[in-house]
Amino acid sequence: MILAVAGGKGGIGKTLVATSLALANAPLQFLDCDVEEPNGHFFLRPRIRKASGVSITVPRFRKWKGEVCPEAAEICRYGALAVVGEEMLVFPELCVACGGCFLLCPAGTLEPVDYPVGVVKESVGRSGIEFIAGELKVGSQRTTEVIRAAKDRLERGRDTVVDCPPGSGRPVLEAIRGSDFCLLVTEPTPFGLHDLRGNKKLLDILQIPGGVVINRSGTGYDGIHRWCREENLPVLAEIPFDRELASAAARGRTLPDVSPDWNRKLKDLWERIKKR
């Protein structure tokens, strides 16, 4: 089973839930897809064995090969190509590697070259967890390419926990795609509900079954429960709003580290989801 853990915003508890589930059900594969700010390693403390670069193919102008090609600069919606006099300037940080310019230019004018956008780290973490993490290069915007490269490293047919980026945009879609089930982590506030709605829409589009984990529960707001009932979306777990838990998480400890009770609960949760 591939289980994705997503959530509306940063700091909602996605990584705490994902790493806790992974530890309680180890050994399995853990994939950190939050490539803009990966933090699964704080909880699973892996020893990095291998790091592979991720690059995209961008154009490079070869002046001696041909004339400038204004059509290519015009078709580039991202403004990554400019024609100035006899020169074509390339701005690789804006390029999305669509390849349109190569199709339009006479052969040889533009040369395909690799442009690094990130790295995928592979390692073994606590309890023998196979830990794979994508890391976007600082300044790069090619988030989905790094997520895809990280997912390519997964061994098929094995139990996997995917820690997703926050929000319900394109990177989250890329991270969740192909999962068997998705846990949506939220908090009992109107903000939490707002973001949960967005996440639920994404699951509906991808046709992936989901359930909700309420973090910091017990604050008195029951909007999440009410909405989940209306939507027929199961609330599968609640993590209480507890100072001790918060301080443990801040020190890189997971729920099973805090109590064996959680270990049992999260094993149960995994089995319940698997049996669906």
């Binding site: 600069a73 919606r77 991202y78 403004g79 400019a82 100035v84 006099g85």
Partner: peptide, 15 residues
């Protein structure tokens, strides 16, 4: 109002 690369496009236009 370009999503990105406004300076590049404006630069080409001005040139």
């Amino acid at each position: 109002t370009a999503m990105g690369g406004a300076g590049i496009q404006a630069g080409q236009f001005v040139a």
